[in-house]
Design a protein around this nucleic acid. Structure first.
Lengths: 140, 140
DNA sequence: ATCGGTGCAAATTATTTGCATGAAT
DNA sequence: ATTCATGCAAATAATTTGCACCGAT
């Protein structure tokens, strides 16, 4: 980690309270796409008393300051994605797990629409994760 | 309308109770992408006493039987989309309104992934709706 | 009378609001 | 002493569960 969470928060213009650092420590450095609930569990490992409301408010704050992006999946799951390089997503139908795909693995082109000014293109691929992978990858 | 809601429900293997018909009547025929709440309002116009739980349970039932698809937008909004022809979506940043795009207005190609078996490709474009349209379209 | 299907009240889960506390001037 | 930021309890909104009722056998 080249920069501490505290530094990242300061640079984003957020004052680094202990609660915020506890949350940042996990959510800005995980490759997973955690829900608010998962963030709560991890943050409590560092700061046991932290409240649910603070998790939500802090995650919203991070989103407003561009440190995170929300990603709204099927019904009951809003998920947070650390804003690193742009990428696309694959969602496993069975487990719901989200995998990042390199941006250039998916190409999109579209017509010009008179009525729409397009700012962002979001591609979600869905399907199954193959059990019979290249064996090397299965090694544990 | 070539087929009544009752017929559609029967064909899908759902017995057409009055509540279900009241919901189907709106949600299977609207071009909009209503939330559960909007469905509630419309269904109550036909059947004033219908409960919120019935709306949710019925919408879930329709989804299971392939009559609807859910579409999960930013945080607090799950929305239902009648399963007609495949299409993509444009979401207005300001209003949150969803517009359908013809399927062939967007082209996607992607690498073959060893690990993933892709069943569905979902493209969401986001941005602003242009106020300065071809004037004809603005006429009211 | 029993059983499966239906609808809804109540319970649960997710998220936001508003206020109490503390730090900075 | 006043102001503003912060965190959290409580309120609200969204969704699911489980049971009571009704119609068919």
């Amino acid at each position: 980690m080249s920069q501490t969470s505290t530094d990242i928060l300061r640079e984003a213009g957020i004052s680094p309270s202990s609660q915020r650092v506890a949350i940042a420590e996990f959510v800005l450095h995980t490759g997973s796409h955690p829900s608010a609930d998962e963030v709560l569990v991890q943050a409590r490992k560092r700061l046991p008393g932290i409240s649910v409301a603070t998790i939500y408010n802090t995650l919203n704050l991070f989103v407003e300051h561009g440190l995170l992006r929300t990603f709204s999946l099927s019904q009951n799951h809003t998920v947070y994605d650390a804003c690193t390089d742009p990428h696309h997503h694959f969602i496993d139908d069975e487990t719901g797990r989200i995998h990042d795909l390199p941006i250039d693995a998916v190409r999109v082109s579209h017509d010009n629409f008179d009525d729409f000014d397009i700012r962002e293109v979001q591609v979600v691929l869905r399907g199954r994760t193959n059990p019979q992978n290249p064996p090397a990858k299965l090694a544990k």
